[in-house]
């Protein structure tokens, strides 16, 4: 049994008919695809590296900015402290003609009896009775609206 002539014949057919396809496919498609794949990988890597470098640079800038802001806060605090120093205020006050009082008189101030807290909150048109019967903020607001829309009710005329 011998398969030789058959194989030779078959190869020669592939060679004759398909070989040019293989050759063209290998050279013009396969190699560029590989180049593109590798390029994409390199691109991704470089992009990532670039992003990290950018982040590092941003971080350094922010650090510097933070330092500058902190420094500015400290300087501002110091300037404020210099302006509100006890000695400075005293000398400024003296320059303005102010001085220590000879004596202090305490006077009694008569304060009117305080309004109930709920009346202060809801206004003069509100009454605890209305609240208790109708209940809640909504009814208080409704009562206020009624008072506003019926000015004659409280004895005032337009």
């Amino acid at each position: 049994m011998s398969g030789g002539p058959m194989t030779v014949r078959s190869d020669s057919v592939v060679e004759r008919i398909m070989a040019p396809w293989w050759k063209n496919l290998g050279v013009w498609v396969y190699a560029p695809v590989m180049i593109i794949v590798v390029s994409v990988l390199i691109f991704i890597y470089l992009m990532q590296a670039s992003y990290v470098a950018g982040q590092a640079e941003t971080m350094a800038e922010l650090e510097q900015e933070l330092h500058t802001v902190k420094q500015a806060i400290s300087q501002t605090r110091l300037k404020i402290a210099a302006h509100e120093g006890v000695e400075r205020i005293r000398s400024e006050a003296r320059a303005m003609g102010l001085g220590e009082p000879d004596h202090i008189d305490y006077i009694e101030v008569l304060v009117a009896s305080a309004q109930p807290e709920d009346q202060v909150a809801y206004g003069p048109g509100w009454s605890p009775q209305a609240s208790s019967t109708e209940g809640g903020l909504f009814s208080a607001a409704l009562q206020q609206f009624r008072n506003w829309t019926r000015p004659a009710d409280d004895g005032q005329s337009r």
């Binding site: 060679e15 290998g26 396969y30 190699a31 590989m34 794949v37 590798v38 990988l41 390199i42």
Partner: peptide
């Protein structure tokens, strides 16, 4: 056929080279 065989070998070498680089990159990744 001799020239064809040489072309095959070169293609194979180039393909293998790119495959190796790509494979290394993927493996590292």
């Amino acid at each position: 056929s001799a020239r064809q065989a040489q072309l095959y070998r070169r293609m194979l070498a180039v393909g293998a080279f790119f495959l190796l680089i790509g494979g290394l990159a993927v493996a590292k990744l």
